[in-house]
């Protein structure tokens, strides 16, 4: 900290070039930094994993290093069996999410349309909703055995509540003022749904589906692990029984890629559908 005022000329001459230089460098860093550091972060993680696996306290057999896992991961991509396993998980995921969405929206709209139904169903919903869907796994196993029905039952039960509750939130949010405005504009019922209800509801619904999509993947894999319905979860459990950690970890990496794909797809859809609605984006990080 300088304590005395330098003369004008010295200020201009001495500080200008270095300051400007620094600013320029900062601007360049802003442009390339995310890529450089992002790649560095992933490489560093791989190196730490490799070193930990070789020198760390766990046996290298149980936690194989990336130099073993990554080749397995890539050769997996050439096997039909692998793609079928993936397909089974994704199919159950997609079907379960779809049924839950249709059901959640239908029931949500029905209950939300009447004040009476909303308050009458409140306690029942508040009790049924928090029952973790995975608690139903034994029941599903008894009812369906290791078939896709068991998986669907769990996924649908888990996702139905998420989506229905979001629809209910959305309906309560339909602004009273907007409602009046639309009434004075003498819109028909259909026009009202089209221009007021749907646009207000959509952001909530998208949030619900996005949260449900990740939960659905977790639930699908849980049921594959425990009930043994076909899919990646079962493949991982089998790899564990066969004492084949590289295959196991390669599958987990695959599930991460699946997860990222799911996220990307939803981000894309949301951007397309909700381009006009920026305010929800920060709100719905929940």
């Amino acid at each position: 900290m300088e304590t005395q005022t330098p003369t004008l000329s010295s200020v201009a001459v001495s500080t200008l070039p270095t300051r400007e230089h620094r600013v320029r460098r900062a601007a360049r860093w802003t442009a390339v930094g995310p890529y450089v550091l992002g790649v560095a972060g992933i490489l560093a993680a791989l190196i730490v994993w490799e070193l930990y696996s070789v020198f760390g306290p766990v046996s290298q057999h149980h936690l194989p290093p990336p130099s073993v896992v990554l080749p397995t991961f890539f050769t997996n991509l050439t096997f039909t069996q692998f793609w079928m396993t993936m397909g089974q998980t994704m199919w159950a995921w997609f079907l379960g999410l779809g049924i839950a969405t249709l059901g959640g929206v239908a029931v949500g709209l029905l209950i939300g349309s009447s004040e009476f139904l909303r308050s009458a169903t409140h306690t029942s919903i508040e009790f049924l909703r928090p029952i973790p869907a995975v608690g139903m796994i034994p029941l599903a196993a008894l009812l369906f055995g290791p078939r896709i029905g068991a998986e669907l039952m769990i996924v649908v039960y888990g996702c139905f509540w998420i989506i229905m509750i979001q629809v209910l939130y959305g309906i309560t949010d339909i602004d009273k003022v907007a409602n009046d405005t639309v009434h004075t504009m003498r819109m028909t019922w259909l026009q009202r749904v089209r221009h007021l209800v749907l646009p207000t509801l959509l952001p909530y619904l998208m949030t619900g589906i996005r949260i449900a999509a990740t939960v659905a993947l977790i639930l699908a894999i849980s049921s594959e692990l425990i009930v043994g319905t076909p899919g990646i979860g079962r493949a991982v459990a089998q790899a564990q029984l066969n004492d084949n950690p590289p295959a196991m970890i390669a599958l987990i990496l695959t599930s991460g890629v699946l997860g990222i794909l799911v996220n990307l797809i939803f981000r894309f859809i949301e951007r397309k559908v909700l381009f006009w609605h920026t305010s929800v984006r920060s709100e719905v990080a929940a």
Partner: peptide, 16 residues
């Protein structure tokens, strides 16, 4: 904000 050049002095101390 940091000025591009020139300075602000408060009570004889340069503001940074």
């Amino acid at each position: 904000l940091e000025p591009t050049s020139g300075e602000v002095v408060l009570d004889g101390r340069r503001v940074a």
